[in-house]
Every structure is written in C-alpha cells, then in structure tokens.
Design a protein around this nucleic acid. Structure first.
Length: 134
DNA sequence: GCCAACGTTGGC
DNA sequence: GCCAACGTTGGC
C-alpha cells in the first residue's frame, strides 16, 4: 500500500497538536507540485507526519479524512487543502539522519527535494520506514 | 543565524 | 517566453 509524507514545522503545527486535536485542515500549501499531490489523495490514504526544521523526524501516521477542497486562506483561489485525522504514533520516530543512513530510502523526495512539503511514498518505502519505526 | 536550493514573480 | 530578482524553506 503506497502512501504519502507531509511535513510540518512544530512551531506551526506539531504532532502533539495533531494528537490532541485529532483532525485538522491541511491548509496553507502554496506550491503547485505539493498541491497536485494533495489533489490526488483519496479518503483513507495514509500519510507520514514529519517534523521539519525542529526534530527532523517522522512522528506518526495520519489518514486523509477529507479530500481536496478550496483553501479559504488563499485569496487567489489557486490552492486547496485536505483534512488529516490522527491515526497512530510511531513506536520509534524515524529521523532524517536514519533515513540518510538507509540506502534503500535514498530515493525519497524528502532527500532529493528538501523543500517539497507533500510527497508520495511507495509501498516499499512505506514498509521500510515502518520497520525502522519498530 | 547562515546560506544553499529552488519556486515564483514581474519586467522586458 | 526568458530570465533576473526576490522570497521562502529547511538543513546545518
């Protein structure tokens, strides 16, 4: 089963916020490539939740609870948002350093396109990360 | 705090 | 349609 990875700075929206609130609108994306991935997401799709800048590790898994719709915070109307629901925390967060040290994960867009905030994860990559998470 | 990478904007 | 300038992201 393939999935996704989404990034958030803890200072803006943290995993702890996600756990406490359960469901949140995933808004504020202002990058066309990321937006196109948001459009492709289906209800129930699983996403890794990654802490960028501070922490730099995958914290847990959320699932898509609402598909793409317009983002009210975007005055241009070009961008949309989805909604994510808390699913589970990883037993062991998977750090960027560990991902870099795992050759089978070297194709992750996280490493090649560090600025992309929404990206697809293959079934194989998903399983490798879940194994690393214990 | 710095800076490299890179996406977006706007002038031409 | 090109490309320089600019702004932002995110690792270090």
């Amino acid at each position: 089963m393939a999935g996704w990875l989404v990034k958030s700075e803890p200072s803006a929206w943290s995993w702890q916020n996600q756990v406490a609130q359960q469901t949140t609108n995933w808004d504020g994306v202002r990058n066309f490539q990321a937006r196109n991935y948001l459009k492709q997401m289906q209800l129930g799709d699983l996403c890794f939740f990654y802490h960028s800048v501070v922490g730099k590790q995958i914290m847990g898994v959320v699932e898509l609870s609402a598909t793409y719709l317009p983002d009210p915070s975007d005055p241009t109307g070009k961008f949309g948002m989805v909604a994510m629901r808390y699913l589970k925390s990883l037993n062991q967060p998977v750090s960027l350093a560990l991902i870099k040290n795992t050759p089978s994960l070297h194709d992750l867009p996280l490493l090649k396109q560090s600025r992309l905030s929404v990206m697809p994860i293959t079934q194989t990559q998903w399983q490798i990360i879940m194994d690393l998470a214990g």
